[in-house]
């Protein structure tokens, strides 16, 4: 976990941006810690920060970077971070059940027409005849942990195809990629900017789209501590407003591509500060553009998809039976579709 502050830059920007605004909100300079992974899918926060949208809302944002979604969810529960974006997982639902976390908005979602997450098979399995998802019966399927979003995607796909899969927990994305390349596991699903370069290496083949099995899948959500959701309405709304502006910019530049090439280039440069920062710009550029999936407009969330996920976790006995939509989601902040 690395902590990244640009408070000096922020205060300058904040000052510049805030001056013309009349009637600064009373919660000015509220300190907010935002948990993030260095993934393109977390760009809405990066944009809102870099373009001063958080500052305009009077939020003094400090990013806390994590290596995985799981510790980030725990950090929210332990109040070490205020807001974050993560996939709905068994862990997140359990934390919500313990009154520690609450989903307040949508972030990444699958949508028809936009390049989304892919199903992959290892070259070994592919050569052995697993050229379509229907032919994966009895094969092993990599997940980070039981109850992760990978588990959900694989399981839903298997159900639709009428096949059975052996789910192999490998803890980390890096370990999964290694195991997939060396043929130790047969199949997996992942976001396009990881899937495509892997496929180009020839060791892995793309044989399906997640969106075909889970249309409008609400992949990630914005969440916060239950205390924030219940008692810090003003701050939370301010965060979501800034976040949504960042999302809108991001979608316009890289998903809908309505903002023009110049804006797209600007956007990639902005994101490159956070994502693939160790890679040269040219290389990172492709990955960032490839990885651009829609971030929900206005942080709206797909209630049907969330309900489906909760139901799946319950049937798999990964979370307790008494859990409902209300346990996980505070619907009072954003539109639900």
């Amino acid at each position: 976990m690395t902590t990244f502050t640009r408070r000096t830059a922020l205060s300058l920007m904040g000052a510049a941006a805030a001056t013309p605004l009349i009637g600064l909100p009373a919660y000015a300079k509220t300190k907010v810690r935002v948990g993030a992974l260095r993934f393109t899918s977390h760009s809405a926060s990066f944009v809102a920060f870099e373009r001063g949208y958080f500052a305009e809302e009077g939020l003094d944002v400090e990013f806390k970077f994590f290596q995985a979604a799981q510790p980030m969810a725990v950090a929210i529960a332990s109040r070490d971070a205020d807001y974050a974006v993560t996939a709905i997982s068994g862990g997140l639902i359990s934390l919500a059940d313990k009154g520690a976390a609450k989903v307040i908005g949508g972030a990444l979602s699958e949508e028809a027409g936009t390049d989304g997450q892919k199903f992959l098979v290892s070259d070994a399995a592919y050569q052995a005849g697993a050229t379509a998802l229907s032919k994966l019966d009895g094969k092993s399927y990599a997940v980070t942990q039981a109850g992760s979003s990978f588990h959900y995607m694989g399981s839903k796909m298997a159900a639709k195809e009428g096949i059975s899969l052996k789910f192999k927990p490998l803890q980390k994305v890096g370990a999964i990629i290694g195991a997939l390349k060396s043929g130790q596991v047969d199949a997996w699903s992942i976001v396009p900017h990881i899937a495509k370069p892997l496929a180009r290496s020839g060791k892995v083949h793309i044989i399906g789209n997640v969106a075909d099995y889970l249309p409008d899948y609400q992949v990630t959500t914005v969440f916060t501590s239950a205390a924030n959701a219940a008692n810090e309405r003003v701050k939370t709304e301010a965060f979501l407003r800034a976040f949504s502006r960042g999302a809108a910019d991001f979608n316009a530049a890289l998903v809908d591509k309505t903002a023009g090439d110049e804006a797209a280039e600007q956007m990639v440069k902005l994101i490159h500060k956070y994502v693939y920062a160790s890679k040269p710009y040219e290389k990172a550029r492709n990955s960032i553009i490839n990885g651009a999936m829609r971030i929900n407009e206005g942080a709206a969330m797909n209630a049907a998809s969330i309900q489906d996920q909760i139901d799946w976790f319950k049937t798999e006995k990964l979370v307790k039976d008494h859990i409902t939509m209300e346990t996980l989601v505070d619907p009072s902040y954003v539109k639900a579709s």
């Binding site: 997982s89 862990g91 359990s94 313990k98 109850g147 789910f167 927990p169 490998l170 803890q171």
Partner: peptide, 21 residues
């Protein structure tokens, strides 16, 4: 049991940890 174990006490504990159960 961190890598590739479906069943086992270790896998069970790791799963419980990731589910925050």
């Amino acid at each position: 049991e961190m890598l590739g174990a479906e069943h086992g006490i270790g896998a069970y504990i790791l799963q419980a940890g990731s589910l925050y159960d």
